[in-house]
Deep mutational scan, measured.
Amino acid sequence: ITGDVSAANKDAIRKQMDAAASKGDVETYRKLKAKLKGIR
């Protein structure tokens, strides 16, 4: 179950990262990237 949750989280975070990148929001992008590392 835990694996599914983190996989879903990663997917959601990647989508947020894409949105931040397209807006040029480097700050948010970095925060999300750090979150991704924390999940692993």
Rank of each mutant, 00 (worst) to 15 (best):
residue 1 I to W: 13
residue 1 I to R: 07
residue 1 I to A: 09
residue 1 I to F: 13
residue 1 I to Q: 10
residue 2 T to Y: 13
residue 2 T to P: 10
residue 2 T to W: 13
residue 3 G to E: 09
residue 3 G to W: 06
residue 3 G to F: 08
residue 4 D to W: 05
residue 4 D to M: 12
residue 4 D to Q: 12
residue 5 V to E: 08
residue 5 V to S: 11
residue 6 S to H: 10
residue 6 S to Y: 08
residue 6 S to I: 12
residue 6 S to R: 12
residue 6 S to E: 12
residue 6 S to K: 09
residue 6 S to P: 08
residue 7 A to L: 11
residue 7 A to M: 13
residue 7 A to N: 08
residue 7 A to I: 10
residue 7 A to K: 10
residue 7 A to V: 09
residue 8 A to K: 10
residue 8 A to M: 13
residue 9 N to R: 14
residue 9 N to L: 15
residue 9 N to D: 14
residue 9 N to E: 14
residue 9 N to C: 15
residue 10 K to T: 13
residue 10 K to W: 15
residue 11 D to G: 06
residue 11 D to H: 09
residue 11 D to S: 12
residue 12 A to Q: 09
residue 12 A to E: 13
residue 12 A to D: 13
residue 12 A to K: 07
residue 13 I to N: 02
residue 13 I to W: 05
residue 13 I to M: 04
residue 13 I to Q: 02
residue 13 I to L: 08
residue 13 I to F: 03
residue 14 R to W: 06
residue 14 R to F: 06
residue 14 R to G: 02
residue 14 R to H: 06
residue 14 R to P: 02
residue 15 K to N: 04
residue 15 K to G: 04
residue 15 K to T: 05
residue 15 K to E: 06
residue 16 Q to C: 09
residue 16 Q to W: 08
residue 16 Q to N: 03
residue 16 Q to T: 02
residue 16 Q to P: 02
residue 16 Q to M: 14
residue 16 Q to L: 14
residue 17 M to R: 01
residue 17 M to I: 03
residue 17 M to T: 01
residue 17 M to W: 01
residue 18 D to W: 15
residue 18 D to Q: 15
residue 18 D to G: 05
residue 18 D to M: 15
residue 19 A to E: 14
residue 19 A to I: 14
residue 19 A to M: 10
residue 20 A to D: 01
residue 20 A to C: 02
residue 20 A to E: 02
residue 21 A to I: 14
residue 21 A to T: 03
residue 21 A to H: 07
residue 21 A to Y: 14
residue 21 A to D: 02
residue 22 S to V: 09
residue 22 S to Y: 06
residue 22 S to G: 05
residue 23 K to R: 14
residue 23 K to P: 01
residue 23 K to Q: 08
residue 23 K to M: 10
residue 24 G to A: 03
residue 24 G to M: 04
residue 24 G to H: 03
residue 24 G to N: 04
residue 24 G to K: 03
residue 24 G to F: 04
residue 25 D to M: 02
residue 25 D to W: 03
residue 25 D to N: 01
residue 25 D to V: 00
residue 25 D to C: 11
residue 26 V to A: 07
residue 26 V to M: 15
residue 27 E to A: 06
residue 27 E to V: 06
residue 27 E to D: 08
residue 27 E to R: 07
residue 27 E to N: 05
residue 27 E to Y: 05
residue 28 T to R: 07
residue 28 T to Y: 06
residue 28 T to M: 08
residue 28 T to K: 06
residue 30 R to P: 00
residue 30 R to I: 06
residue 30 R to L: 13
residue 30 R to A: 05
residue 30 R to H: 04
residue 30 R to G: 00
residue 31 K to M: 07
residue 31 K to L: 04
residue 31 K to A: 06
residue 32 L to R: 01
residue 32 L to E: 00
residue 32 L to F: 03
residue 33 K to Y: 12
residue 33 K to G: 01
residue 33 K to C: 15
residue 33 K to T: 02
residue 33 K to N: 03
residue 33 K to R: 11
residue 34 A to M: 10
residue 35 K to R: 08
residue 35 K to D: 00
residue 36 L to W: 03
residue 36 L to N: 01
residue 37 K to W: 03
residue 37 K to I: 09
residue 38 G to A: 14
residue 39 I to Q: 06
residue 39 I to P: 05
residue 39 I to N: 05
residue 40 R to T: 12
residue 40 R to C: 15
residue 40 R to L: 14
